[in-house]
Design a protein around this nucleic acid. Structure first.
Length: 497
DNA sequence: AAAAAAT
C-alpha cells in the first residue's frame, strides 16, 4: 500500500518484496491487536496470573542509595517492583499516562486496536520512557506483548524531524526482524517515522553495500551480521542512537548464540553514543545468561519471572508415546491433520533442516497439504512460505527452531514437537528455553492452545521428564497413540473442540 | 555440518 511503502525505507533490501511482505504482516497485526483486548480480559478473569511477574533489583549499592522504590500496580497491590536508582515509576493504567505523542496514541488505538496496556507494558513503559532512561532487562511470558514495549519505546524516543538512525533493534532471525518492523510501521503510521530493515538481501536483487546510500531512517531493525556490515561500511551511523534493543535477548547474549556480535555492537554504540539506553527483552533467561545480563545492565531496572511460573496455563501440553518413528508419522497423518484442521493453524517442530524437508516431502507425497521453512532455503522462498502461512493460505507448517522464537501468528493453536529440543553439546539434555519458546507459538495473547510431544525412545521419555521437572509442571500422557478418542479428548480438554 | 547469521 502506498502509505506503507512511503513511510518505510527504500534503501537496500528489495523495496518490492518488502512492500508485499509488509502487507501480509500488517494484516496479521490486526488479529494480534484484536486479541490484545481479549488478553486483558483473560488476565482479569484470572487473578493468580497477576502474581506471576516478580520484579527485583540486583543493583545493591543503588538500592541502598535510592531506597528501592515500590511500584504502584493498577491491578493488584500485591505486585511490588523494586527498581534501581532514585526514579519513582508509576505503572501505566492507560496509554494516556505515558505522555506519548497524539500521533502515537492514534496508532495504538486506530491501527493496533489496543485499549489498555498489558501487564508487562504497564510496568516497563514508564521505565523505558522516564528520564534518566535507565537500561532495562525485562522477562515476560510468551505472547504477553513484549514487542509493543520496545517498539513503543523506540517510536517515542525518536525525533522524526532528524534524518539519522536513533533507535536500533537487533533480532536473532531475519523473519523476526521483518515481523518487528511491520509492527513498528503499523504502530507508528501517523508519526512520520521511517525504518530500515537490515537483513541479508535476497540473491535476486543484490546491491553491493558500497553502492547503497547511507541509512537516514530513524529506526533500524535487523540481524547482527548485517547490522555490523552496515556500521563497518560507514553506511549506518550510530552517533545519534538513543535506544538499543535486543529482542530475544537471552539468545542474543548467549555463548552459543550471538554473544560476540551483540557485545561488539553494544560496545561500538556505547562508544559513539554514551548515553544510549539498552533494552533487553525475552521470555526466557537461564541462570548463566541472567548472571551475564546483570553485568551488562548495571544500575538498570530488572524484571524476571520464576521458571516455574513461565508455562502458559492456557496452552495444554501432552506427551504421546510412539513405538517407532513410523508411528510418529502416523500420528501426524491420522490425528494432527484430522483434528488440526478444525482448530486453526499448526506448527510442527523438528530438530534438523533435513528432517524438515523429508517430513514435508513424505507428507506431500501422500497428499497431505503442508509447507516447510528452514534456514537452508533461499531467502525469497522463506519469505514466500511465511507469507502464505501468515495469510492463512496454508495451515500446517513444518519448521526448525528458526521459528521457535517470537513468531507471532494468533491462529496457531496447535504445536507439535516431532523432535524434542535438545542441547547440542549434550543431546540427552533438553533445551528447556527452546521448549518454552516453541510451545509459546500457540496461545498468543492468552488464547487457548495445545501441544503434543511425540516421544519414541527411552531417551525421549527421559528428556521429557527433565523438562517437566525443570518447569515443575506435569505433562499429561495421551494413553494410546492409535486412539482417535484419546486425541479428541485431549483437544476437548484444551478447550479447542 | 545443530538452528540461526554471515563471511
Amino acid at each position: 500500500m502506498a502509505d506503507d511503502s512511503s513511510s518505510s525505507s527504500t534503501s537496500a533490501t528489495s523495496a518490492a518484496t518488502k512492500t508485499e511482505e509488509k502487507k501480509s504482516w500488517a494484516d496479521e497485526a490486526e488479529d494480534e491487536a484484536a486479541s490484545a483486548t481479549s488478553a486483558a480480559a483473560a488476565e482479569a478473569e484470572q487473578p493468580e496470573e497477576l502474581k506471576k511477574i516478580e520484579t527485583l533489583s540486583i543493583s545493591d549499592e543503588k538500592k541502598e542509595e535510592g531506597g528501592g522504590r515500590l511500584l504502584e500496580d493498577p491491578d493488584d497491590s500485591e505486585i511490588k517492583a523494586e527498581t534501581s536508582g532514585d526514579t519513582v515509576y508509576t505503572s501505566a493504567v492507560s496509554f494516556e499516562d505515558l505522555s506519548l505523542s497524539k500521533e502515537l496514541i492514534k496508532g495504538l488505538y486506530v491501527e493496533m486496536n489496543f485499549t489498555k496496556p498489558s501487564k508487562i507494558q504497564a510496568i516497563t513503559l514508564p521505565m523505558i520512557l522516564t528520564p534518566p532512561y535507565l537500561d532495562l532487562v525485562a522477562q515476560a511470558h510468551n505472547g504477553s506483548g513484549k514487542t509493543t514495549c520496545f517498539v513503543l519505546g523506540m517510536l517515542s524516543r525518536v525525533d522524526p524531524s532528524q534524518k539519522t538512525p536513533q533507535a536500533i533493534c537487533i533480532c536473532p532471525t531475519r523473519e523476526l526482524a521483518q515481523q518487528n518492523q511491520a509492527v513498528l510501521m503499523k504502530m507508528g503510521k501517523y508519526t512520520g517515522i521511517t525504518s530500515f530493515c537490515a537483513i541479508p538481501q535476497d540473491s535476486a536483487n543484490y546491491i553491493p553495500i558500497t553502492k547503497c546510500p547511507p541509512v537516514t531512517d530513524q529506526v533500524v531493525i535487523g540481524t547482527p551480521g548485517t547490522i555490523k556490515k552496515w556500521t563497518s561500511a560507514k553506511k549506518l551511523g550510530t552517533r545519534d542512537v538513543k535506544i538499543l534493543v535486543f529482542d530475544e535477548a537471552d539468545h542474543m547474549l548467549a555463548e552459543d548464540g550471538f554473544k560476540d556480535d551483540s557485545e561488539r555492537i553494544m560496545k561500538e554504540i556505547r562508544r559513539s553514543s554514551a548515553s544510549c539506553q539498552v533494552l533487553l527483552f525475552s521470555a526466557t533467561f537461564n541462570e548463566t545468561v541472567k548472571a551475564f545480563v546483570s553485568k551488562v545492565v548495571i544500575g538498570g531496572n530488572k524484571i524476571f519471572v520464576k521458571k516455574e511460573e513461565l508455562t502458559l496455563e492456557k496452552v495444554k501440553q501432552y506427551k504421546v508415546q510412539c513405538p517407532d518413528e513410523l508411528a510418529k508419522m502416523d500420528v501426524i497423518k491420522t490425528k494432527i491433520f484430522e483434528f488440526g484442521q478444525k482448530v486453526g493453524q499448526t506448527i510442527i517442530f523438528v530438530r534438523t533442516r533435513n528432517t524438515a524437508s523429508m517430513l514435508h516431502e513424505t507428507l506431500r507425497g501422500e497428499g497431505y497439504e503442508c509447507t516447510s521453512v528452514h534456514g537452508a532455503q533461499k531467502q525469497e522462498d522463506r519469505d514466500r512460505i511465511i507469507k502464505e502461512f501468515k495469510d492463512g493460505l496454508t495451515t500446517v507448517l513444518i519448521t526448525t527452531d528458526l521459528l521457535a522464537r517470537g513468531f507471532d501468528q494468533s491462529q496457531v493453536n496447535l504445536v507439535i514437537n516431532f523432535d524434542l529440543p535438545v542441547k547440542y553439546e549434550s543431546p540427552s539434555d533438553p533445551d528447556c528455553e527452546v521448549y518454552l519458546h516453541r510451545i509459546g507459538r500457540a496461545g498468543r495473547f492468552g488464547r487457548k492452545g495445545v501441544v503434543f510431544n511425540l516421544l519414541c525412545t527411552d531417551r525421549d521419555k527421559m528428556i521429557m521428564e527433565k523438562i517437566e521437572r525443570h518447569f515443575n509442571h506435569f505433562v499429561k500422557e495421551v494413553p494410546n497413540w492409535r486412539s482417535d478418542d484419546d486425541f479428541e479428548a485431549a483437544f476437548k480438554e484444551a478447550g479447542l473442540l
